[in-house]
């Protein structure tokens, strides 16, 4: 069972992501409703993939990516940004900080599922 950490402050959006992922077999979702939540969950759960939003209230997605890529324990975990279309600069930054993929909401569930299979099988 592969574990996927979703960091997203909107509960509705989270449940849509969960539904898309759980429609596939072999994946378990761990939900973080904020960046702080994610920081707390990361050392507890050995996650295989991280999916994060950018605009969040406590720490933003870029800060989370920076932390993950800086930390030897999490450095190699694949990371996707799923964000509502917004600042081009923020998207560039996210990718240059080490995000592997950038998906724009509204995303197609099939597109997300394909990427997940590509990265963690």
């Amino acid at each position: 069972m592969k574990k996927i950490l979703i960091t997203e402050d909107s509960p509705t959006m989270r449940s849509l992501l969960v539904a898309a992922i759980e429609a596939m077999d072999g994946y378990r979702v761990i939900e973080a409703s904020s960046g702080f939540d994610a920081l707390r969950l990361l050392p507890r759960e050995r996650v295989d993939l991280i999916i994060t939003d950018i605009n969040m209230p406590d720490i933003n997605g870029l800060e989370l990516i920076s932390y993950v890529r800086d930390n030897p324990n999490y450095r190699s975990i694949p990371l996707f940004i799923i964000s509502t279309e917004g600042s081009d600069r923020d998207r560039e930054r996210g990718l240059s900080l080490g995000a592997d993929e950038y998906l724009v909401k509204p995303f197609q569930p099939e597109q997300l599922q394909r990427l997940i299979r590509d990265y963690i099988g």
């Binding site: 402050d9 909107s10 959006m13 964000s83 509502t84 917004g86 909401k105 509204p106 995303f107």
Partner: peptide, 15 residues
């Protein structure tokens, strides 16, 4: 801004 941004994303998902 964040409120409008979130609403945009959500409404988009539902069409």
């Amino acid at each position: 801004f964040r409120s409008a941004h979130s609403l945009k994303g959500l409404a988009g998902m539902f069409g």
